[in-house]
Design a binder for these strands. Structure first.
Lengths: 120, 120
DNA sequence: TTCATTGGTATACTCTGTGATACTGATTAC
DNA sequence: GTAATCAGTATCACAGAGTATACCAATGAA
């Protein structure tokens, strides 16, 4: 039972919204992308440094995600061929576009924890 | 090689941020939570209505997620025992706290699509 | 009469994201 | 001489997220 307004205006925007939402989820999906982006944006450059900054992540997952994010130009990887080799990860402009999402998610997480703490 | 500032100030906030971020990811993880929340917040109340509003979702996934989200008080489920039975899903206050996150993700998705479109 | 709709459940399957553990070769610290 | 650090790679294995398909009983529409 859809009326005309419904058909002409609302659904179109809704459809676009879901699509956009699903696109975003696809790009930043998984447990690790956003924490890694956040870590690098916070100035962590070295592999082990990033690893230590994210509780629970394994070497393997970090390695995999970094590789894919480099391919997708989300981050930049630079090798300085000293010995021992020095590797640095940096955020790109593209990377910074996730800033607002991450910020909102951090805000939510902090509020959520406060709520839980208050309850018990 | 950590200096004193590093140990005393920055890492503490960073640690809280990652934790908050990871908490949030845990709660809204997966492909379907946010699209479902968004759909319900947009006024979709009936099961099939929600199902149709989210491209790609299956009956089973929707059913599972709705059940769990009801347990977690993210949504409210009401049964009107007419015949045939009528079921309605509604957002709760808790549900609306995800609003800003969803908004930012929609914004990102739309921008992203524009970028891609421009490129090719 | 037949079909579609509603709100799901049942069953069986895939698959991949994630985890655990171990290892590398070079270098520096103790 | 031993341990630790660096930046990863290699294997193996698993749970559970997600997919596909069919089905139910009741109702209303064509």
């Amino acid at each position: 039972m859809k009326d005309i307004e419904n058909i002409l205006s609302t659904p179109r925007n809704q459809a676009e919204e879901v699509r956009a939402l699903q696109d975003t989820i696809y790009v930043i999906g998984g447990k690790w992308r956003l924490p890694i982006i956040n870590s690098i944006c916070n100035g962590n450059k070295r592999f082990r440094e990033i690893e230590r900054s994210i509780p629970g992540i394994t070497t393997r997952m970090l390695s995999r995600e970094l590789k894919e994010m480099e391919l997708n130009k989300i981050i930049k990887r630079t090798v300085y061929p000293n010995s021992p080799v020095l590797v640095e990860y940096e955020s790109t402009e593209y990377c910074t576009t996730f800033g607002d999402i991450i910020l909102e998610m951090i805000k939510w997480g902090i509020e959520h924890r406060k709520m839980i703490a208050k309850k018990y």
